[in-house]
C-alpha cells in the first residue's frame, strides 16, 4: 500500500467528502429520475398488460358461454386473474341496461318481448376502459373516446343458401350482485332449454325490424357503435337482403332501427333463440 501511495501524483486538491457527495448526488438523481419517469412507464405498461389480459380473459369467458349455449354443456368454470379493475355481473333485469333489443315484423309487431342481455363487465380503474361480455359478444369501450369496438362477435348470422336469419340471444343472469378483483373463478351454468321461436316465413318484400336501444345519452355503457358495425356487416347482404337504417346515429344514445327486407326469391326464415346463462359465482 505504501508503494501505491507514493505513486499517486497529486491528490491534495481532491476532497474526499465532496467526492462522496458528488457520487451520492448522482445516485439520488438517478433514483429520482427512475421514480419520476421509469416507474410510471412501468405502471402504464402494467395497466395495458392488465387490459390485454382481460381482453383475452373475456374471450375465454365468451368461449365458455359458447359451450353452454351452442353445445348445451350444463356447467363451465374458468379461473382468471382480474388485474387493475373489477369484474362485475349485471343481471338481465338491471335497471339501466346497456342495451335493449327488439325484433319486430313488418308491422312492428314484436316476435319476442324486449330483450335485455345483461352482461359481465370488466371496469378498469386506471385505463378508463370497460370490456363487456354481452349477448355473446365481447365489446370494448374507452371512456375518453366516443366509439366502441367489438373484440369477439356473437353468433348471429344470415345463411344465403337457405335464406335464413338466425339471432342467438344470450341472457346473463345472476342471483345476487357480484363483483370481483384479483384471482377469481367464474362459474356459469345453462338455465333450462333454450327458448326457440321460428317465426312464420317472411315472403319476398316483407321485412324484419331489429331495434337496438342503447343506454340513454351520456351513459358510459353505450356500445351501439360496435353493434352497429357488426349488424351492418352481418346482415347487409345484397342481393338477398336489403338493409335500411333509421334513427340513431349510433353513439348518440337514441334507438337505431335496422330493417332487413327479404329480396330473395324464396321465403325468408327467421330463427330467434334465447339462451339463459346464470353466473353462479365470480
Amino acid at each position: 500500500m505504501a508503494a501505491l501511495v507514493t505513486m499517486r501524483i497529486n491528490d491534495k486538491g481532491v476532497s474526499e467528502a465532496i467526492g462522496f457527495m458528488l457520487i451520492f448526488g448522482m445516485v439520488i438523481v438517478g433514483i429520482g429520475l427512475v421514480t419520476l419517469y421509469g416507474y410510471p412507464l412501468l405502471l402504464q405498461q402494467q395497466v395495458s398488460a392488465d387490459e390485454k389480459i382481460m381482453e383475452k380473459n373475456m374471450i375465454v369467458l365468451q368461449n365458455d358461454i359458447k359451450s353452454l349455449a351452442y353445445k348445451a354443456v350444463p356447467f363451465k368454470e374458468t379461473s382468471l386473474k382480474i388485474g387493475g379493475g373489477s369484474l362485475t355481473v349485471y343481471d338481465s333485469s338491471y335497471s339501466t341496461p346497456s342495451s335493449t333489443i327488439e325484433i319486430n315484423d313488418n308491422g312492428n309487431n314484436p316476435y319476442i318481448p324486449p330483450f335485455t342481455p345483461g352482461e359481465l363487465r370488466y371496469e378498469s380503474m386506471s385505463a378508463q376502459t370497460d370490456i363487456a361480455l354481452q349477448n355473446g359478444a365481447v365489446v370494448l369501450r374507452r371512456h375518453v373516446e366516443p366509439g366502441s369496438v367489438m373484440l369477439a362477435e356473437p353468433r348471429w348470422f344470415f345463411d344465403s343458401a337457405t335464406n335464413t336469419v338466425v339471432f342467438n340471444l344470450i341472457k346473463i343472469t345472476s342471483d345476487t350482485i357480484m363483483s370481483k378483483e384479483g384471482i377469481g373463478t367464474v362459474q356459469m351454468r345453462l338455465v333450462g332449454e333454450p327458448s326457440y321461436s321460428a317465426a312464420p316465413p317472411i315472403p319476398n318484400g316483407q321485412a324484419i325490424k331489429l331495434v337496438y336501444t342503447p343506454t340513454p345519452s351520456g351513459g358510459r355503457q353505450d356500445y351501439s357503435v360496435a353493434w352497429d358495425n357488426y349488424i351492418i356487416k352481418t346482415f347487409d347482404n345484397p342481393p338477398y337482403i336489403s338493409m335500411t337504417k333509421s334513427g340513431g346515429p349510433p353513439g348518440s344514445g337514441t334507438p337505431v332501427t335496422y330493417t332487413l327486407t327479404n329480396n330473395g326469391s324464396s321465403d325468408m326464415t327467421l330463427v330467434i333463440k334465447i339462451f339463459e346463462v346464470n353466473i353462479k359465482s365470480l
Binding site: Q46, T78, S79, L80, I183
Partner: peptide, 16 residues
C-alpha cells in the same frame, strides 16, 4: 416484485 405482480396466473387453456 413488479414482475411477479404483473404476470398473470392463467389456467384457462388446460380445460379446453
Amino acid at each position: 416484485y413488479l414482475v411477479v405482480s404483473a404476470t398473470s396466473v392463467y389456467t384457462a387453456g388446460d380445460t379446453h
